[in-house]
Design a protein around this nucleic acid. Sequence first.
DNA 1: CCCACTTGCTACATATTATGTAGCACGACT
DNA 2: AGTCGTGCTACATAATATGTAGCAAGTGGG
Lengths: 104, 104
Amino acid sequence: MPENDKKAQRPIMALLDILGQRWVLRIIWELRDAPLNFRALRARCDQISPTVLNQRLTLLRDNGLVDLGDDGYVPTPLCEELGEILLQLTDWSRHWQQQQTQAD
Amino acid sequence: MPENDKKAQRPIMALLDILGQRWVLRIIWELRDAPLNFRALRARCDQISPTVLNQRLTLLRDNGLVDLGDDGYVPTPLCEELGEILLQLTDWSRHWQQQQTQAD
DNA sequence: CCCACTTGCTACATATTATGTAGCACGACT
DNA sequence: AGTCGTGCTACATAATATGTAGCAAGTGGG
């Protein structure tokens, strides 16, 4: 985890630190449309090791991005806003892949 | 690096794999407004080790996101679009940090 | 009461990845 | 020829992730 001085000052730095950790973006992405329990979430994330999954879920819960409800893990309302932003990546990624296949 | 079956099918998965690697988001972020050479970029990224920085820059160049010009590393036009999306994270992160400090 | 079953999660040995420091090879300038 | 800054590499050490097995707690029968 990149420990840096800017983190305390700038929320965006703290955010990039979190989102930049392996599996975090993917986990948020997979939780976008339906609650998933621990084991289902693992399956969606290519059977990520439970150790890391738990570390990441703890991190996300500590930071108010994810909650564990009766139906499984769900993004908080705040995190759903974040999901909206990430959703834009879908369109962009198609655009990007087109340009890439042309370049090859 | 999460190797997964969905990657080939869905551009978004390939994208999340790249963006989810340590330092990648940060590097894209730091290159947003001005070209930075290798050493300057290191300095901006908390003196990230040159080994990893080079790995990530190679990755980003191979994927058409970053170029090395005369003034240093610059995001490609395509990557600038991505930067626009990431820029929205700034506002969101402030909102997020407010809620977090209330929760503590 | 006991048993099977599912849940979130942990233990731990192994493999992968990052860090930190030093410095190389190359080009430009003096 | 010598110095400077550049992108980048080597390599030993430290930090992280993986993969497998299984624990502890809850639920719902029979």
